[in-house]
């Protein structure tokens, strides 16, 4: 059976490692990107993840800009977007959801929290 693909976008290599491990444990294949711009480049190269886990504060292109860019493209409309960030202000969560993010996890989180959110979204490998 083919695994679903998850893209982990975070400028912290440690966080990419942690999220990658969680997602692999849930049965996903994982690709990584250190910022929004590189993530967009990978999407443009034809990689099509089922879900992207997106940090907010990153160099070059931040997570909110990435969400906005993805939502503008018809061919990426099926990608589920979940913010995973330390940004915890209510107004920031509203901004991300309004831009088109489907879910929002605030760091710190437990692996169960990620699994719960994927179940909420109906995205399970």
């Amino acid at each position: 059976m083919l695994s679903l693909l998850a893209m982990v976008i975070d400028d912290s290599s440690a966080m990419r490692l942690i999220l990658g491990r969680i997602m692999r444990g849930l049965g996903f294949d994982v690709v990584e990107a250190p910022n929004g711009a590189e993530a967009i480049a990978r999407l443009e190269s034809g990689i099509k993840p089922e879900i992207a886990l997106v940090d907010w504060n990153m160099p070059v292109m931040d997570g909110l800009a990435f969400v906005n860019a993805v939502r503008k493209k018809e061919q990426w409309r099926d990608i589920t977007l979940m913010m995973v960030t330390t940004e915890s202000e209510q107004s920031q969560i509203v901004r991300a959801l309004a831009a088109g993010a489907h879910e929002y996890v605030i760091k710190p989180f437990t692996p169960d929290a990620i699994a719960d959110k994927l179940a909420l979204l109906g995205v399970l490998a």
Partner: peptide, 8 residues
């Protein structure tokens, strides 16, 4: 789940 460019 939201669609393209829409609010969730």
């Amino acid at each position: 789940r939201p669609g393209l460019g829409s609010r969730p």
